[in-house]
């Protein structure tokens, strides 16, 4: 897809434009997505999630409810985890966005949190997983920024912000505990 952020330093890639028949007002936006500059023309009502998925080709962000309830579409906007189904594409003009695709270099090792998810079998179908990963990544970064220690109960509470239908959450909790340096309670070694 033409909008996939380029890896050439300083290059600006262009996102796929709206359908010609789209009736709402259009906006020229510039966004930094996973470290790359992206220029795009977006319609007023385009949801950020759809912008990322269908105009920039970053399909790792998933839509599970379009109501902000399920968390599958969670991404980081200026470092804060947000539901990308509850933001409009024109709202992110000038902002910095990070999606699940940015958590590890394409050929590089997985992040600590990603690694813990595979070690603890914290995903089955994997549809909700990008949301959990982004949510926990922001959670860790914010605590570090604030110089705050994360307790196990803070971590447990954070996990309540996303739904998973496959795992029953037990292995997601183990993965989170492993990633944040707590005893995972894993029984498979």
């Amino acid at each position: 897809m033409t909008g996939t952020p380029s890896s050439v330093p300083g290059a600006i890639s262009q996102a796929v434009p709206p359908p010609v028949s789209e009736p709402t007002a259009r906006h020229q936006i510039r966004v930094t997505i996973n470290g790359s500059d992206v220029a795009a023309e977006v319609e007023s009502r385009l949801l950020l999630a759809d912008f990322l998925r269908h105009r920039v080709g970053l399909t790792g962000t998933h839509l599970g409810c379009e109501q902000g309830s399920c968390g599958a579409c969670t991404v980081l906007v200026d470092g804060a985890a947000v539901r990308s189904c509850l933001m409009l594409a024109p709202q992110v003009d000038g902002r910095e966005i990070r999606t699940v695709e940015s958590l590890a270099e394409p050929d590089g090792p997985l992040s600590v949190i990603q690694e813990a998810f595979t070690n603890q079998h914290g995903l089955q179908c994997g549809f909700c997983t990008p949301g959990f990963l982004c949510s926990l990544t922001a959670f860790a970064e914010e605590a570090e920024e604030d110089g705050r220690d994360i307790s196990e109960s803070d971590l447990d509470a954070q996990l309540d912000s996303s739904f998973c239908r496959c795992t029953g959450y037990v292995n997601i909790r183990r993965a989170a505990r492993e990633a944040f340096g707590f005893d995972s309670g894993d029984t498979h070694g």
């Binding site: 998925r53 399909t59 790792g60 839509l63 999606t99 699940v100 958590l103 997985l110 998810f117 990008p130």
Partner: peptide, 14 residues
């Protein structure tokens, strides 16, 4: 897992 964790899955809508 590796693909799914990196956001490289291919669900139908992807």
């Amino acid at each position: 897992d590796d693909r799914l964790l990196r956001g490289d899955a291919r669900f139908v809508d992807d």
